[in-house]
Nucleic acid binder design. Structure first.
Length: 844
DNA sequence: GCGGATCAC
DNA sequence: TATGGTGATCCGC
């Protein structure tokens, strides 16, 4: 396909891309792209490095050649079959789409360089880079005009920009600044996930909810003036800000704003000093929207560190990350939490922008005509035949704009008793707050402990009168914890997760609050059991496994997530089962539309046009668009919905733990209630359940028998307002969604035997409205609820890495924390005299 | 299982 | 003069 000349050109381009040139936007003072490329080539050509680049290039080209050969051998039938399979998966993904979280990605602008510039005013107006003559970590925006980029060797950068100042990195300083930033971030999401010194993800969903009721004063911040950094901010940044940006909070970012031009205040103010009326005119109030929150975060970062940050706001991490790059530097961008907004954003997005798609993947996909996410979607069937399951699942996630919707943070082992008590107390306080909000009091306090070997123990104690305050709960929890600590003495408890739960709520209270609370809906099964005076015990599953154990089984995002941080707070992943809108649902409409779009555009593709009804999964060939739509509509209204679902039995790994109906159906008869442990809560009865890893897995398997990943999570005996608040209505569809508890959910859907998810009794009716009425009545009888607070141990800030890569620090410390470290290496470049110095330390 | 390739920072 | 260091995962062998 490519002649050699083209190949050479490609290689050349890739090399330039590698050193960050192709997208160079040379300014007037800088160099134009052509000149930059020329200088780089001159410096590169003939070097051993270049030779190796060429070699690697050939390998990739060979891979592509093999792939194209494979493609040529694919038959129409294979492709059709693949299309069916893939579209089934698409539908499951659509059903699992979760737009309820607000994820923020914060990225400090040219972080290392910015810190250096801040601390040495002489550098501010000059092109600088941090690193060495061998390699640069980052450059400031001035240097970037000359084509000087991160990952470029310093000596080449010097050729591009002779006046470039290369500053040796000072990681201690960057760490200190990073800590300041993280302190701010923690206020918005205590469980935020730091990816490196200059990058972090936050889930601000909970913060947003609470913020709605905040008085203005709580959202007021005082502008610290006399900050030279403000005034000397490069002018170029002004016009980079989006209109959106300026319209929201012009005070902050326009130099002409009254706030920043206010006369200098001889002393600095901050939020702790907001009572001084003199300073009111120099304050700014942020709104309650996500956008305003992120504005506020960036404002505070800038005030505290005099450094700017960019941010992305989106319903998942994948999108948030892309967003944060959109208005960089010192800007932000939001994708609104609706499917259309997501798809609009994704539409023309080059796949290379997505984290995880690197140079090679980009090139391979380009060979298949895939550059944008839309093209990625159009070629989904083909890709499923050419790539591994892991890969094409990942591609599909991307092309649908899906990503992780909850953050997980690293575990750090807690072995000290005092820390364990302290954590326990903290959890009790949080739990008490939640209880207070719901107006609940309970009699049973349960602690859950997971040790470093993933063994889970729960210990419960029931008292005669209800408790609700932090002190009361902690008094009980503390004793339970003490018993466990003493039982292992003199060995310390090596914990990786702790949870505190309260249950056994009096029925009056329950009745009073269940209507407004999501708990009632999420805990239908418990309610059913409540009548017998029992609580339901659930065990978390998939995330308990080590990354390697699950690596082959989990969805790409699961893997990605575990790659970043395999850890997790069980409380956040096991709590909720999302509402799934089955047959009446937008997903189908959406899918229909997507197929519509696909039909409209796939003509130019060399791929076969195969239209598969997203409902019945039958191929619809040679039909007009209208006819096809009619068919889909007919299917949507017909019983084949459940049929379609029932047939969807692929092992499907879904990242959020929000399983789809088809998963639930998979359980069928294999999912009796044995996966729940019914715990007697007689007074003073101490309950013990010890789950070892295999048991945990088997429980996960029960929920999803054909896969270990346990993506069907119980709508468990836990409460997390962060995830629950969106689910406020009660409907059959929702019960379907929560039907992982139901042995006969399939039947329920097909109308053959509707089983009430609350009372668990079969209802002899096929009339959905009648059935719904019954469910509603049952819900009103709900008796028991549970609330739970879990946490994982907090990660430690410290790091021992000596490299200039912050990621390396992170992963190293993560591995150490999790006890999973298998290899810890430090290497040195081989000197010309061949005195090798490589050190490999093996742990475990 | 191991090592090379890929990716990220 | 000179093109990093580190860790994780995937995949083929």
């Amino acid at each position: 396909m490519n002649n050699t000349k083209e190949k050479k050109k490609e290689c050349h381009d890739d090399l330039l891309l590698r050193v960050g040139l192709n997208d160079n936007k040379a300014g007037m003072e800088g160099l134009d792209k052509e000149k930059i490329n020329k200088i780089i080539m001159e410096a590169t050509k003939g070097s051993r490095f270049y030779g190796n680049e060429l070699k690697k290039e050939k390998q990739v080209n060979q891979r592509i050649k093999n792939m194209m050969q494979q493609k040529a051998e694919i038959t129409i039938q294979q492709l059709r079959k693949a299309q069916l399979q893939v579209d089934r998966f698409v539908m499951e993904l659509e059903q699992s789409r979760d737009l309820n979280n607000t994820i923020v990605h914060i990225d400090m602008d040219a972080f290392y360089a910015a810190v250096e510039m801040r601390d040495d005013p002489e550098l501010k107006s000059k092109p600088i880079a941090v690193g060495s003559m061998s390699m640069l970590s980052t450059s400031n925006y001035h240097a970037r005009r000359f084509g000087v980029r991160a990952a470029m060797p310093g000596f080449i950068a010097k050729r591009l920009c002779p006046q470039l100042i290369i500053v040796p990195p000072n990681f201690d300083k960057y760490r200190a600044v990073s800590k300041e930033v993280k302190e701010i971030l923690a206020e918005y999401d205590p469980n935020f996930m730091a990816m490196s010194l200059d990058e972090a993800y936050l889930n601000i969903t909970k913060h947003l909810r609470e913020r709605q009721n905040w008085p203005e004063e709580k959202r007021r911040y005082f502008i610290k003036t006399g900050n030279s950094a403000e005034n000397e901010k490069p002018r170029e940044e002004d016009h980079i800000l989006s209109e959106h940006e300026l319209s929201v909070s012009p005070l902050l970012f326009e130099d002409s704003s009254p706030g920043l031009q206010a006369p200098e205040i001889p002393f600095q103010v901050n939020s702790e000093e907001q009572n001084n009326p003199l300073k009111l005119q120099h304050s700014v109030v942020f709104g309650t929207s996500a956008e305003e929150v992120v504005k506020e975060i960036r404002f505070r970062i800038e005030q505290k560190t005099t450094l700017t940050a960019s941010a992305g706001i989106a319903p998942n991490t994948m999108l948030a990350k892309v967003c944060s790059d959109k208005n960089k530097p010192n800007g932000q961008y939001q994708i609104l939490p609706n499917r259309q907004a997501v798809m609009d954003f994704i539409k023309d997005l080059p796949i290379r922008k997505i984290s995880g798609i690197g140079k090679v993947t980009e090139k391979m996909l380009k060979a298949l005509g895939v550059i944008t996410c839309t093209e990625l979607y159009q070629q989904r069937a083909l890709l499923s035949l050419l790539f591994s399951e892991t890969s094409w699942h990942y591609f599909l996630h991307i092309s649908l704009g899906l990503g992780s919707t909850h953050l997980e943070r690293t575990f750090s082992e807690i072995s000290k008793a005092e820390e364990q008590y302290s954590l326990c107390q903290e959890l009790c306080s949080e739990l008490a707050q939640d209880l207070h909000k719901e107006g609940l009091k309970g009699r049973t306090v349960t602690i859950k402990l997971k040790n470093v070997n993933f063994e889970v123990k729960t210990r419960a104690s029931t008292v005669s009168s209800v408790v609700s305050t932090a002190q009361e709960i902690f008094a009980i929890a503390k004793e339970l914890l003490r018993t466990e600590i003493e039982a292992d003495f003199p060995h310390p408890l090596r914990l990786r997760l702790m949870g505190v739960r309260i249950s056994s709520f009096p029925s009056e209270e329950d009745k009073k609050h269940q209507q407004k609370s999501i708990i009632g809906f999420l805990q239908t099964k418990k309610q059913a059991l409540a009548a017998t005076g029992c609580t339901l015990e659930t065990t978390d599953q998939d995330q308990c496994k080590k990354p390697l154990e699950m690596s082959q089984k989990k969805s790409f995002f699961d893997k990605k997530r575990s790659e970043m941080k395999w850890s997790h707070e069980d409380s956040f992943t096991c709590e909720t089962v999302k509402k799934h809108d089955l047959h009446i649902s937008p997903p189908f409409q959406v899918l229909k539309k997507m197929m519509h779009e696909n039909m409209g555009t796939s003509g130019k593709s060399d791929n076969c046009q195969i239209f598969t009804c997203p409902v019945c999964f039958r191929e619809q060939e040679s039909v007009s668009l209208e006819a096809f739509n009619r068919h889909v509509d007919a299917c949507l209204g017909g019983p084949s919905v459940s049929e379609a679902h029932a047939s969807s039995r692929d092992v499907y790994k879904e990242e959020n733990g929000h399983h789809s109906l088809s998963l639930c159906e998979k359980q069928d008869s294999e999912t009796p209630q044995k996966h729940t442990e019914i715990t007697s809560v007689d007074s003073e009865d101490l309950v013990e359940t010890i789950d070892n890893t295999s048991k945990v897995e088997s429980q996960g398997a029960l929920q999803s028998p054909r896969s270990r990943e346990g993506c069907c999570r119980l709508p468990s005996a836990s409460f997390d307002s962060q995830h629950c608040h969106q689910n406020s209505s009660v409907s059959l569809e929702r019960e379907d969604g929560g039907s992982s508890l139901q042995p006969s959910s399939h039947e329920m859907i097909t109308g053959q035997a509707l089983v009430c998810p609350v009372c668990n009794l079969e209802q002899k009716t096929s009339d959905l409205s009648l059935f719904n009425t019954h469910v509603d009545v049952c819900l009103n009888k709900g008796i028991i609820q549970e609330m739970r607070k879990d946490t994982v141990n907090q990660p430690k800030e410290s790091s021992t890495s000596t490299g200039n890569s912050d990621k390396a620090q992170k992963t190293t410390t993560r591995a150490k924390r999790t006890g999973q470290i298998t290899k810890y290496s430090r290497s040195k470049k081989i000197k010309p005299n061949n005195s090798r110095s490589t050190l490999d330390l093996f742990f475990q």
